[in-house]
Simulated scan of single mutants.
Amino acid sequence: MTGTAAEVIKTNDDGRQLIAVVTGASTGIGEATARRLRADGWIVYAVARRAERLEALAQETGAIPAATDITDPAQVEALRDRVLQERGTVDALVNVSGGARGTDSVGQAKDQDWEFMFEVNVMGTMRLTRAFLPALSENGEGTILNLTSTAAEHAYEGGGGYNAAKSAQRALTQALRLEEAEHNIRVIEVAPGMVRTPEFSLRRLGDQGAADKVYAGVSKPLTAEDVAGVCAYAVNLPHHVDLDLITMRPVAQAAQHKVIRES
């Protein structure tokens, strides 16, 4: 890494500035990760659907806005073509886009909620990975980081759809690591527990009051910046170091079923 504190540039061994594609960059963990990698000196393509938020991020950080709906294969392919046309290669794909919808039991499940969760968490991750794999393989030192969840580790009542989607994303990640090790592609999984972000629980529950109750009494849930710091640390390590799975929770969340809440 070269440059001053204000002009840091993260380079490879040949002196070329490293390039990352970060999805979910309009809010929460994705936005925080794009900010962190920019601060670390990466060229960052910030990917999300909301173009106006990406433009604001670009003005603040110098990230390159790339408005893309990852549920649309044609838009994903157009994103890949743009990045490779402009840069010629890519060093890291950071799949943060995801989300949960609803808390219905499996017996009361709504098709549209489950379809959304599988589209953004599983199919979106697959589409981005499929699109960029050839370039990452040709790069010689490519990295893919997938953001899953502790919901992939332990099921809970009302979480069936999200548990299923994140478990599938984890299985995809594990298979990918086995398939791509021979191409020197590093595959990292970061699985956060309770993270308080502006939109995750609100979008899941549809009501700010209900969203606030998720974190009620928990003095220090994880923040988007906490998770972004771990993601950035993992992709900034020397390429031969692969943090296969990083599970992170706030201290107050001793396990998925045990959360310390102050009265």
Rank of each mutant, 00 (worst) to 15 (best):
F116M: 03
T129Q: 05
D212I: 01
G140S: 03
T11F: 01
M194T: 11
R53E: 00
A211V: 09
G102A: 04
G159H: 09
N146Y: 05
G99C: 01
M126K: 11
M194R: 08
D81S: 13
L178E: 02
L202A: 07
I19M: 06
T27Y: 04
Q85W: 04
Q256Y: 11
S105D: 09
G158Q: 02
G99F: 03
A100I: 06
A181E: 11
E180K: 15
P73W: 02
H183D: 09
A164M: 13
L205A: 01
I70C: 08
M117G: 11
I70Q: 04
K258E: 04
Q174K: 15
R49H: 09
D14E: 10
L18N: 00
R82V: 02
A151I: 05
Q174I: 10
A210S: 13
L84I: 12
H183T: 05
A25P: 12
A6N: 07
V227F: 11
S201E: 11
A20R: 07
R36V: 02
Q17C: 10
I188W: 08
R177I: 03
V90S: 05
K220T: 15
M194D: 00
L222P: 15
E31G: 01
D226R: 13
L245T: 08
E119G: 14
G41M: 01
E153V: 07
A228R: 05
V230K: 08
G28K: 09
A254P: 07
V120L: 01
V76Y: 09
R101W: 03
G62E: 00
L57D: 00
T89G: 12
V227Q: 03
A168I: 08
L178M: 12
L178T: 06
T173D: 02
E86C: 07
S219V: 10
D72H: 14
R50K: 15
T223D: 01
R16H: 14
R249K: 15
L133W: 08
A151V: 05
F200V: 05
D81T: 05
G142T: 06
A210G: 06
K10V: 01
I260R: 11
T223L: 10
T197I: 04
G3C: 06
L205V: 07
G142P: 14
A5I: 13
A78Y: 10
Q174S: 11
K213R: 15
A78I: 04
A254M: 14
K220L: 09
Q59P: 04
A171E: 03
A109P: 09
L79R: 12
Y162G: 08
R196C: 02
Q108I: 02
A216L: 06
S137P: 08
R127W: 04
I29R: 10
A232Q: 06
V90T: 00
R80V: 02
E182G: 12
D72M: 03
P65C: 03
A20C: 10
P73R: 04
Y45L: 09
A254V: 15
V120G: 06
V8D: 00
T27Q: 07
A78K: 14
E119Y: 07
A252Y: 03
V230Q: 10
R16S: 11
E138V: 10
I144S: 03
M1K: 13
T125S: 13
R87H: 15
G159S: 13
Q108W: 05
E225L: 12
I260H: 13
A234Q: 03
